[in-house]
């Protein structure tokens, strides 16, 4: 009888914790996603021979539409990328052409980084794609964190499983690991330099590392982040690419 009670207690405890996990995830989503945002970013790509930095300005609405214009280096300047739903177009000023990226091209790395176009395309809210389980508390990078294990509840999530280390106070992920269905670790992301912007906490530095490939990974820094701005709709049209 005593054992039985203990069991009930345990079950309800995990029940509570998994509800907590969902709640934590919702809080994360609230921090990370917004109606729209504008930001500038600098991507530091470590090559085998040399490093290079690509800067860009991005406008995005929800998770469905985004528009990126590359600012430097000169060779990339004026290149624009438009994502609408699951489609991606790139405009190149040198040829004045709009090229659609599709099929297996989407799997290629963007600008030689550890990110593929697909990585940039998966844009659903975490809570829409994954169900979360609470997996304990830890200290990461001197911050107290909850550890969540996410498993895809839809069939077409690029990564079947994720593990997230979420700051207990700010509800911002500080580290994330992406796993294949088989359990193989594919990518690791480290997020840092969390700043308060427009009433929310936001990580401004993200390091992506493809765990299967040798190399130092790709560093992504955001600046001038503005949330919930007025962004005219024409920005997200193919016509705007040519402007």
């Amino acid at each position: 009888m005593k054992h039985f009670l203990l069991l009930i207690l345990l079950i309800s405890a995990t029940e509570v914790l998994s509800q907590d996990a969902e709640a934590i995830l919702q809080k994360v989503d609230r921090n990370l996603s917004s109606e729209n945002r504008i930001f500038e970013s600098a991507m530091l790509i470590h090559g085998r021979r040399n490093d290079r930095t690509v800067t860009s300005r991005t406008y995005s609405v929800g998770n469905k539409k985004s528009f990126t214009e590359y600012l430097t280096p000169p060779r990339e300047q004026g290149t624009k990328m438009l994502k609408l739903e699951s489609q991606l177009w790139i405009y190149s000023p040198s040829t004045d052409r709009i090229i659609q990226i599709s099929g297996h091209m989407l799997r290629q790395s963007v600008m030689g980084s550890d990110l593929s176009y697909v990585d940039m395309m998966d844009d659903r809210k975490l809570t829409d794609v994954y169900s979360a389980i609470y997996a304990g508390d830890e200290i990461f990078d001197d911050r107290k964190v909850h550890v969540l294990e996410l498993t895809a509840k839809v069939t077409d999530a690029a990564y079947y499983k994720r593990k997230m280390w979420i700051d207990r106070e700010r509800f911002v992920p500080l580290k994330e690991e992406l796993y294949a269905k088989s359990g193989q670790l594919l990518k690791r992301t480290t997020l840092s330099e969390v700043k308060q912007i427009g009433g929310r906490w936001f990580p401004t530095k993200i390091v992506f590392k493809d765990m299967l490939k040798e190399g130092e990974g790709t560093e992504f820094r955001m600046s001038n982040i503005k949330f919930n701005q007025k962004i005219p709709d024409y920005i997200f049209s193919k016509a705007a690419l040519k402007k």
Partner: peptide
């Protein structure tokens, strides 16, 4: 295609 540095390149 991809440039020597990994950047995107376009050419007409």
């Amino acid at each position: 295609g991809s440039s020597m540095n990994g950047g995107m390149v376009f050419s007409e």
